[in-house]
Computed example of a mutant assay.
Amino acid sequence: MFSGFIFDVEGTLVDCVPQNLRSLQEALGRFGHQVPYTTLQLYSGLDGDQTLQLVVPEADEGDRKTILKVQGSIYEEKYLQSVRPFEGVRDVFKSLTERGGRIALATDCKGPALKHYLSLLGADEFISATACGDDVDHGKPDARLVGMALRKLGLPASDAVMIGDTPYDAEAALEAGAAAACVLTGGFAAEALVEAGCFAVAEDLQALLPSLEQSKVDPAREAPLTASAAIAQRRSA
């Protein structure tokens, strides 16, 4: 079994992807950018600045920062209180820690949102470390969040698995040297998650638990597509 279990939060532990995407869509609209929800879904979980570079390439760095600030305000004021935890998170955390595993969170969210998520989960006693948006400037697929979580756990990457809900979580995990597994609660198809490098994909965390409790995956497994390559492949299909 793995020794370390690094969990994404948004879309993996708490059900908030639609709210995040709607708040981003509204923020873009305030600045005259009409972007379809389905387009934003392709980049759900990607670093916010990178997302804006892709969907509104005409926006400069200052514009992107302003849009993201407005999006954060909309989300906290209009959507945050509607977020709910996914069922079974505490049970999964308890099972993993009872078997000797250590749990960390790796998420680019921060501030009031992260504090609210942690209160919803009510699982602080199982969490050994947290790497969040207050710690690094770059979100996934940048591997630094995962790397920081590993350092805080004091574990080698080969002993850990990152659990997320997007191809970007998988890419960050693999770049950091950890294994990757995903749930389908973020809106991505199982095929996209497998293409991005996940050794296991399941409907939710409870269904994923048996795969997390098995022996570590073969390090010689086939190299995956990067998240960006997987998206390009799906869009051209």
Rank of each mutant, 00 (worst) to 15 (best):
E61N: 10
Q81V: 08
I6M: 04
I103P: 04
K115T: 13
V70L: 13
T107V: 06
L24T: 08
D15Y: 05
D124Q: 15
G29L: 10
R84P: 04
D8S: 06
R99Y: 02
Q25M: 09
A129E: 07
V70Y: 09
S128Q: 13
K69T: 14
K115C: 07
R90E: 11
C16W: 03
Q19Y: 14
L54M: 11
S82G: 14
T12P: 02
G4Y: 00
H116E: 09
C109T: 15
I103M: 09
T51F: 03
L105Y: 11
D134V: 09
Y37T: 03
G139K: 12
L121N: 01
E87F: 09
R102E: 12
A27L: 05
G133I: 08
D60E: 05
G45T: 05
V35Q: 03
E26S: 09
G45N: 06
H116V: 02
F7Q: 01
Y79G: 04
L105D: 02
R30K: 14
L46K: 12
A104P: 06
L24Q: 09
K65I: 08
T39V: 14
A27H: 04
H116A: 12
R102D: 03
P36R: 07
D63G: 07
R22W: 10
G122P: 02
V56N: 01
C109Q: 10
V89Y: 01
G32Q: 09
F5D: 06
R22M: 08
N20L: 12
H138G: 03
S128K: 13
G100A: 08
D60N: 12
E10L: 08
D63Y: 06
I103S: 06
K140L: 09
